[in-house]
């Protein structure tokens, strides 16, 4: 079970590498566009479009990545005071909900991307970027990865619950002796 978790997290981390690269590309691209336009009046439409095209991988691949690195926002007023086991139960609920949301949105968006592919959708601006369906494909990819991470989280939460339970049984057994 632990090796499955590790495998999943490796995949999420791998995609995260791509998204990290997009962050760097975004910073350099926007800055370069600004400077080249100001100094040399150069500003191809395609590179301007690429700016906001890069938000998509960062935001969507980033979903699973931020889940993996526990960068999600939660209200911890009660959570912090719960026992490890209770926290495990909340984590389990979260993970199952994550899988459900991820699956639903992935399923909804596959049709959406397919439609864009059939239309061979590109930019309405001449000189803009083609293949907008690739951009749209980050929605199912991102939420699909989220499902994947959700599976890992489910297993982790399950281990958290059972291990604390076993621990409790062991303690109880010891006390019984």
């Amino acid at each position: 079970m632990k090796s499955l978790i590790q495998f999943i997290e490796k995949v999420v981390e791998g995609f995260g590498g791509l998204a990290r690269l997009c962050v760097l590309a975004l910073v350099l691209l926007v800055a370069t566009n600004v400077i080249f336009r100001y100094l040399f009046s150069i500003g191809p439409v395609s590179l301007q479009e690429l700016e906001w095209h890069l938000i998509s991988p960062i935001a969507l691949i980033g979903l699973a990545y931020s889940m993996k690195h526990r960068a999600d926002v939660r209200v911890d007023i009660f959570y912090d005071k719960f026992s490890i086991r209770k926290q495990g139960v909340i984590d389990l609920l979260t993970a199952v909900a994550t899988i459900a949301i991820g699956l639903y949105i992935t399923w909804l968006s596959i049709k959406y991307v397919g439609q864009s592919y059939r239309l061979q959708e590109g930019s309405p601006d001449p000189g803009g970027l083609p293949m907008r369906y690739l951009l749209k494909a980050f929605i199912p990819i991102g939420f699909g990865l989220l499902v994947f991470q959700g599976i890992a989280d489910t297993l982790t939460a399950y281990l958290k619950i059972t291990e604390t339970k076993n621990e409790a049984i062991k303690i109880a057994e010891r006390e019984a002796i």
Binding site: S41, G43, V45, Q48, P124, D125, P126, G127
Partner: peptide, 25 residues
Amino acid sequence: LKGLKMRIPGLAGKVYSELGVTVRL
């Protein structure tokens, strides 16, 4: 028009850029 930075979307943007305008979306 050469080097002029203009906000102009679509087909007209393409035409302006032929004349050296820098098209800004």
